[in-house]
Design a protein around this nucleic acid. Structure first.
Lengths: 338, 338
DNA sequence: TTGTACGCGTTATCAA
DNA sequence: TTGATAACGCGTACAA
């Protein structure tokens, strides 16, 4: 079913049909109505590939993430895909995994699909191979990195200040009287490194230089065992800062299983304010990395850029601590949340 | 950068370049090598829109879901998009929300993108308006519904037997000595209805006809309040079956806040085996609705269909109970999970 | 107000 | 072994 088919049925030329489709002027009221009826009756839908070929616009955005099952990413995807859909764009979403080498490959894939823009979520995309791939395959397509940045002309960064936020986490724990600290993160990333740095700095301001640093695999089991090891090796620990709620939730369980009372004997802070922090018992105090806001910004700015408006190359927004039960009193749930 | 540009640089015709690109025979070794080098050096990538126009193949699949942030869907999306990517397809993922009326609109959207197939995840797509939209706009495109089915020739169903599974849940709770039951689900769906039916039937086999039925909004807060109301209105309740872990997790917290001991005084079963059931304290026994397997099947069968192989119109797979702590003893975490 | 002809980037057919 | 040409579906100058 093409405009040719419709044109033939209507006894007009294809261009007339095209004009009706695109609400262009210069068509008599009656032919317009007649063709509209036919279009509707036939269930005609325009072929976007053909339209895009002719118009050199795909109305498509490429979205790259490590793993859509993680709350951090699915929240971002939801916001961006909804925002772009409202503007008439579709999103091609690619799970690139954590494999460093293959990331360039995904840049090529979205390039083939003629995306008009791309948004890469996660600091993992701030690296040389991605930079090289963008420079080679998408030198003129606007690319936004959520929580990362690159030095290319067409790449824009939207970041949150996790470093200062982590400093605030240290301050909060110090204020609450903690004195023996540990930090747990997954595989090393730029983000977890700046969290560690900020946390260290915050502790230093309180005169603390000693810090237990642990790493776990990025799954839901290892953080449990790492936490067990942690309290065995450093039994007097009274505060743990996890780089993400995904790690803090199993960690909390390990602490409870180990007989520790939270928050009386040990306090916990997670990261990213995901649903994990909220579902866990007790509910986890977390450093909100503002993924929602970052993605909303990336989406709006990409849209502006596509409309020809200028946008800032790099934006950094502050992070906030959301205090829940692992650093404070445990109370029955309050409405509203947040 | 098109094959014309490459052809000009190489001093050959565009068709020669095309042949090299597609590994077609009949090109001398040296021109082939020379052009390959040029292609690589220029960072050329084929335009899939143009290729698809000529080949009448988009190498694209449409994926419709209610809300990607829900674990049930993001798990499915992950499996399908990864499976299709491996076969050279990209997925266009659309969050259709729960709004009944607009669903047809999304069928049109993916139609315009010339998808070669579609997978709709969730029983919510088993309804008349979706059926009408498919009949009108995608009568010849294979469509798979995960946990649903429609009577159209081009629509295939892949379902899990939640009804029998729910019967087994009732049997488990009866075996453990429970006698006062309640059922909590979100907004009514085909899926939650068959769970309710199956649960009722299972209870009936144990001679129980009394059942408290509650509904909550599909968010993370309302299940908490609904559960509070439940134990206030039916204080002797000693078993609650939640249609989904999303509801069971806040429910568990409400029970704990209400002073109930789990599982000693009250037992809980959730649904879908999402990460919620695992992160919650205590860990929630759940009816695994096998979303992974359903999606793997849908993906593999769609791929077969696109390859011209015949596939079954309707598949039903059994569900299993995963017993955790809300129906049994609470123990420190065991490796491996599952 | 409407129709004709071309171009978008690619593949395939046919001719050289 | 290679090149010219048509076709895919659509939008748009330009012509009528």
């Amino acid at each position: 079913m093409t405009i040719y088919d419709i044109a033939r049925k209507a006894g007009v030329s294809p261009s007339t049909v095209s004009r009706v489709l695109n609400e262009k002027p210069g068509i008599s009221r009656q032919t317009r109505e007649r063709i509209k009826g036919l279009l509707e009756a036939c269930g005609y839908e325009p072929n976007y590939a053909a339209r895009g070929l002719s118009e050199r616009s795909s109305k498509t955005i490429g979205l790259l993430i490590a793993d859509i099952r993680l709350a951090y990413y699915s929240t971002g995807i939801q916001i961006i895909s909804e925002g772009m859909a409202r503007r008439g764009y579709c999103c091609i979403i690619l799970n690139t995994g954590v494999d460093e080498a293959s990331r360039a490959e995904y840049i090529r894939i979205i390039r083939r699909r003629q995306v008009e823009g791309a948004i890469l979520i996660g600091c993992a995309y701030q690296n040389d191979s991605v930079e090289a791939a963008i420079a080679k395959y998408m030198p003129d397509t606007p690319v936004f990195i959520v929580n990362g940045c690159l030095g290319l002309d067409n790449v824009y960064g939207v970041l949150s200040d996790e470093r200062s936020g982590s400093e605030k986490c240290a301050a909060l724990l110090l204020k609450q009287g903690c004195s023996r600290f540990a930090f747990v993160s997954g595989t090393a990333t730029i983000s977890s490194s700046s969290k560690l740095e900020g946390f260290r700095e915050g502790l230093a301001k309180g005169g603390i230089t000693e810090l237990g640093v642990y790493r776990c695999r990025d799954d839901h089991f290892d953080p449990y065992y790492v936490t067990q090891r942690l309290i065995k090796e450093r039994p007097d620990t009274d505060a743990i800062y996890y780089s993400s709620d995904c790690f803090a939730a199993p960690g909390v369980r390990a602490l409870l299983d180990g007989g520790r009372r939270i928050p009386e004997e040990i306090k916990v802070i997670g990261g990213d304010d995901s649903i994990f922090a909220y579902i866990s018992n007790p509910k986890i105090t977390t450093l909100d990395s503002k993924i929602d806001e970052l993605c909303r910004l990336a989406c709006a700015n990409l849209a502006d850029l596509l409309d020809g408006k200028p946008v800032p190359k790099r934006i950094v927004i502050p992070t906030d601590i959301i205090e829940r039960e692992t650093t404070g009193p445990i109370r029955p749930m309050q409405w509203p949340y947040l």
